[in-house]
Design a protein around this nucleic acid. Structure first.
Lengths: 331, 331
DNA sequence: TTGTACGCGTTATCAC
DNA sequence: GTGATAACGCGTACAA
């Protein structure tokens, strides 16, 4: 908790000199430097990041923000981990915010991040025409979008080819002989969801089929909602023989509902989920999923952010990563 | 990004008056207040939290730190969720740090939190005699420990009765007829681990048995390590008929190893894990666990922290929560 | 009731 | 090479 002043006093120099030593400016005599460094050690000095941020122009505050919808979802936790690893490796701290798919929370945290003068923000935008985020971008704070994109404003973006992931997953089910494939999707106004739906539909078209429009439902991405929607679908007069589920947690819920209703997986109903899970292999039955490279998404997003912080005027970049269908025993 | 000055100029008042309006001080004429509030709105003013923190004495910065070992572990994620919910409800933002059970990272983040002048810190200490944390406490920043305790220094603490949880879990296995019960524990110098080991041993004693000392192993709390240690144990000449596994991820790893080696659960080897999982029910087989009230741990910790921030001199409190054995099909 | 002025701990721009 | 000193944006004694 020692300040520059105290260090300066102890070393019999001015605070300016101490600051110079700290910031590796070489315009200081070796002997002065030695004296200062000793005082620094003796007082166990650590710079006050708050004062530093107040003084600094943007871009050197060693703090970035990450807003994710739900850090209890392993997919987002893995993204966060990728971001954190790169941040830590670059001496950056992370202000991690949980938006809960709640616009009010997203707004609150966006405000906090701006008011904290972070160097930059990583986030999957709540929806495609996100006014709040657009304002932040306009204000000049570097923003990197992950997972989902923004409709109007060009930003750095790390995304996964959701269309292709969905297309392959549904094609896989069709090849297994399924003709009544249910879709449990997430919120409609998110780019990823739209892409997955498009993949679902196109896979049918490509196989010369028409998608069963009585079997499409939306959930809220949580386990419980996967369970509820599945229960609804399988008790239909003309139920699906397979389910393509729009995220990991809902897929686990679907498995639970099927077990509860005595349906065998995959014999009665096959299931393919989106987003892999670390324990997908350990589920009953092991879950077939479209695996997204979430860690890489986070890693590359943070790297992009660091580049943009260093060079604010470079043109926005889009990194597109490929998902991978991992066939296990649920399909 | 408007500052107090700009608002003041627009409203034809001094910055002091604007500040008073913002801080709800009532010593301001209604008409002045109205003018200021209009300017505030027109400029879309948001206070700069950095400047505010620099000026403020501790305790009113609306920022707290949370250091957890691994936010990819659902147990810690749930704690974090409890903390976050209470923080958000009180307009606090959370500086969330992932220490990775790595002392260097813990030190780094502890420094960051101090240098960021947070109002307080919630954390499970890396080990019982944690020098770094003790220094922080001495420096006066309120600290609430969760899950694990500190040996020497009294702090607010929210813990779970790990002894009892382990005792009940192992007793359950003994009652099922098991006599060769393996223990896969975590790091030795953590209070929770010691308590669980004690529960494991005492359960044997209480049943008039001696714990098999050739069946105790330590893992690193991650899935892969649970898999490896289990593989080692079950290929012993005289293998265990049951496993008590010290955390959730290692238990999933244990299940994987058993499946891989063709052991049936629970017929060949029964498994009980510590820490519940949201999808424990969906595993193959559904995993018997000692469920910890992780969300409540986080919630109460943050509430304790808020109380201490408001009243720094109150005597430290320990909240002890009860775990619950959830018997599923793996035992 | 309102305004002036100081200080929080830095960094950066001047002089010397 | 080094030392004053002016910001950064805010809250608050103190003066008016």
């Amino acid at each position: 908790m020692a300040s520059l002043h105290e260090v300066a006093r102890r070393a019999n120099v001015s605070i300016a000199t101490v600051s110079r030593v700290l910031n590796k400016s070489d315009k200081v005599l070796p002997q002065t430097r030695a004296a200062v460094e000793q005082a620094l050690r003796e007082l166990n000095y650590h710079p006050n990041r708050v004062a530093r941020r107040l003084r600094m122009k943007a871009g050197r505050t060693q703090l970035v923000g990450l807003i994710i919808p739900d850090f209890q979802n392993p997919f987002y936790a893995e993204i966060a981990r990728g971001v954190e690893d790169v941040a830590y490796a670059n001496d950056y701290a992370l202000l991690l915010c949980n938006s809960d798919e709640n616009p009010a929370k997203e707004r609150f945290y966006l405000n906090v991040l701006c008011a904290e003068a972070v160097d930059g923000i990583v986030l999957p935008p709540f929806d495609e025409r996100n006014v709040e985020v657009n304002d932040v971008i306009k204000s000049g704070i570097p923003v990197v979008c992950v997972d989902r994109s923004l409709a109007k404003v060009p930003t750095d973006l790390v995304e996964v080819d959701n269309y292709r992931g969905a297309f392959e997953a549904v094609t896989h089910l069709i090849e297994k002989g399924h003709r009544r494939i249910g879709l449990i999707e997430g919120r409609p106004h998110i780019s990823t969801n739209r892409e997955r739906r498009r993949g679902y539909l196109d896979a049918h078209v490509a196989a010369g089929l028409t998608a069963p429009d009585d079997l499409m439902r939306a959930g809220d991405l949580r386990m419980e909602s996967g369970r509820a929607v599945t229960a609804e679908l399988i008790t239909l007069p003309n139920p699906p023989t397979a389910l393509f589920v729009g995220n990991n947690l809902m897929a686990v819920g679907a498995l639970a509902a099927l077990r509860q209703h005595g349906r065998r997986v995959p014999q009665d109903v096959a299931v393919v989920g989106f987003d892999d899970l670390p324990w997908a292999e350990a589920l009953d039955p092991p879950l077939t999923t479209v695996r997204q490279p979430a860690y890489d998404v986070g890693r590359q997003a943070m790297e992009l952010l660091l580049k943009r912080i260093a060079e604010p005027d470079r043109p926005p970049v889009t990194v597109r990563l490929m998902p991978q269908l991992v066939v296990r025993r649920s399909s």
